[in-house]
Design a protein around this nucleic acid. Structure first.
Lengths: 166, 166
DNA sequence: TATCGTATGTAATATCATAACATGTCAAGC
DNA sequence: GCTTGACATGTTATGATATTACATACGATA
């Protein structure tokens, strides 16, 4: 029952109560599924749990391996389909730069995240980026483009790694 | 010698003088290479030309195929290395969402581009997005993240395709 | 209980990317 | 001129990521 504090490769660069944030995100995902009539089936639920537990960006094959160990299907589409569902529902995000997926830390709440990927420790921080999205919307408007999905990703060094590198 | 106007899948959604923009980008890439002491060798030069000529996002294997036809190497690293060079020099961009590359329309000039990808016609528009980058920098600053590279990509419908879909 | 839509599973394959190593090219220094 | 070292190009082989096509199961509902 003790909170699982972590300072390393996590979805945020700060120490935090991992068990709490994971449980909370899961609870919200359940409530949202219920509300929307989306079917959070066992594979999908377990996939989200895996993302939340690992607390980092995982490749589809990493997820698949865990699912297979637990008696779910062993073939790639099993993982890709579950992950796709989670992304569609806003319960997870796809990090294109890493060919990987992370659990969303704020499912349901209006949020337009940007991702900051540390090239040293591989941690991925999901930051609220309302202003970035607004600027993006404006740029789209200028060229008459109708945005449907957005990926905002930056590669660099997180604070801890930058200090360590000095 | 007549300018090659195009209204379909292009690097911008607007009609424009393709021959002009391609030649101009090539000339700037040459000048910049000279200035920086970067070696714009035959494969690299030809790779850039291929991107400029096609005027859309091309996968590494698309590029490779053309290079191979013209007597260059036939194996993936040939294309990936040339493309990597171009991206490093700022002569091309990598579009992660498409696993593809496009020639940069503004090599050398300070620019922080965002990419707008039409899911209908597959055209990719490179838009100046200074404001988006500024917002991104600010978000990074808040979490103490040192940005090195950024990918700003949006998927949606370009103006022409949105009208056609009505 | 028949049917339809959706979800899950499999096999097979397609697509994208890199590691490891051999050869070629060219300029700097002896 | 030759050697050396840095870099570029090429190859083989393999790894990593993702999708297509099809079979089976499940659940709601008419």
């Amino acid at each position: 029952m003790s909170p699982n504090f972590t300072a390393d490769a996590g979805l945020a660069f700060e120490r935090h109560d991992h068990a709490h944030c994971a449980g909370s995100a899961m609870a919200r995902a359940e409530a949202l599924s219920e509300a929307k009539g989306a079917r959070l089936t066992p594979v999908r639920r377990r996939t989200l749990e895996i993302l939340l537990e690992s607390h980092r960006a995982l490749g589809a094959y990493d997820v698949l391996e865990k699912l297979a160990e637990e008696g779910f299907g062993k073939q790639p589409p099993v993982a890709y389909r579950a992950l796709e569902f989670l992304v569609e529902q806003g319960f997870a995000h796809r990090i294109r730069r890493l060919n990987a997926f992370t659990a969303c830390m704020n499912p349901g709440t209006a949020h337009r995240p940007a991702f900051f990927i540390c090239r040293s420790c591989s941690a991925v921080a999901e930051a609220q980026a309302e202003a970035v999205r607004t600027a993006m919307d404006r740029a789209a408007e200028e060229i008459g483009f109708a945005i449907e999905r957005v990926n905002l990703e930056a590669l660099g060094l997180c604070h801890a790694c930058a200090e360590a590198a000095e």
